[in-house]
């Protein structure tokens, strides 16, 4: 630690301090990583479901649903995530809605994420040729059957890459939960930083977590993209 402050190469003592810190707090750090994963995965899953639903609202022929969908998307797409999280964590108890802190984080990510997922789904639907919908209607399919069997399965194919971006957005956004006290990896490393003053190492650890997950998501996305492209070639026969 002393060696780090002088800006030189960390000496043996400094390395020992760092190792001790990491060993003593392994569970704490691991919990932080797991919390980040939990926030991201639950946030993304929720956003996917809710976002698709809102997208269906926005393309439906029912005017109140379209208006509702539009207002929803414009609000949650334009509100800063930190503001939303603070509103949920500190505001909702004022009107008698008390959620556990972790679920406040998930709720914020779902609400904000679903607005972006909705726009992804909507532009995915936009890429499907008008002929597909016309053909489906000519066969007598209803609005919902048409969406379920014809439009959405094709739309999801063009949406792989944008959805991966949505996922990464939610992953990175989950770090803001640290600012309202959720013990994710950002929060945990900052807590340790206050105790041990090893800012550089801790920053690198937290950064590596996000970098690895983001790159991992990108890799999975590329793999899915290939899978989907192949199946499309097979599917056109």
């Amino acid at each position: 630690m002393a060696a780090l402050t002088t800006g030189g190469r960390p000496g043996k003592d400094a390395m020992d301090t760092i190792w001790t810190m990491l060993r003593d707090n392994a569970t704490f750090l691991l919990n932080g990583v797991l919390t980040t994963i939990g926030l991201t995965v639950l946030g993304f899953t929720g956003a996917l479901v809710l976002g698709t639903l809102v997208a269906i609202f926005r393309v439906s022929p029912v005017t109140p649903l379209r208006v509702l969908g539009t207002v929803y998307v414009e609000f949650f797409r334009n509100v800063p995530l930190l503001t939303l999280l603070i509103l949920i964590v500190f505001g909702l108890p004022d009107i008698g809605l008390l959620l556990p802190l972790f679920w406040c984080g998930v709720l914020g990510l779902v609400l904000a994420g679903s607005a972006f997922v909705c726009e992804t789904v909507r532009s995915g639907i936009n890429t499907i040729g008008v002929g597909q919908s016309e053909a489906a209607r000519a066969l007598g399919m209803s609005f919902t059957t048409q969406l379920r069997l014809i439009i959405l399965p094709q739309a999801f194919r063009t949406m792989v890459q944008p959805l991966v971006n949505n996922f990464i957005g939610i992953l990175i956004g989950s770090s803001l939960a640290a600012a309202v006290g959720v013990s994710d990896i950002t929060n945990v490393t900052q807590q340790l930083n206050i105790r041990y003053a090893e800012a550089v190492v801790l920053f690198l650890i937290a950064g590596a977590v996000y970098l690895v997950f983001a790159l991992g998501a990108g890799g999975v996305g590329a793999w899915l993209e290939r899978l989907v492209t192949r199946s499309r070639i097979g599917g056109t026969r």
């Binding site: 780090l4 402050t5 800006g7 990464i168 990175i172 956004g173 770090s175 803001l176 640290a178 600012a179 950002t186 900052q190 930083n193 003053a197 800012a199 550089v200 920053f203 937290a206 950064g207 996000y210 970098l211 983001a214 790159l215």
Partner: peptide, 22 residues
């Protein structure tokens, strides 16, 4: 690639907590 996958709050904490030590 680094800054694209780095949450801004982490960079803020780095400036807030790490840099003063240097």
């Amino acid at each position: 690639e680094f800054f694209r996958s780095m949450p801004m709050i982490l960079v803020v904490y780095a400036f807030l907590l790490a840099l003063p030590r240097f």
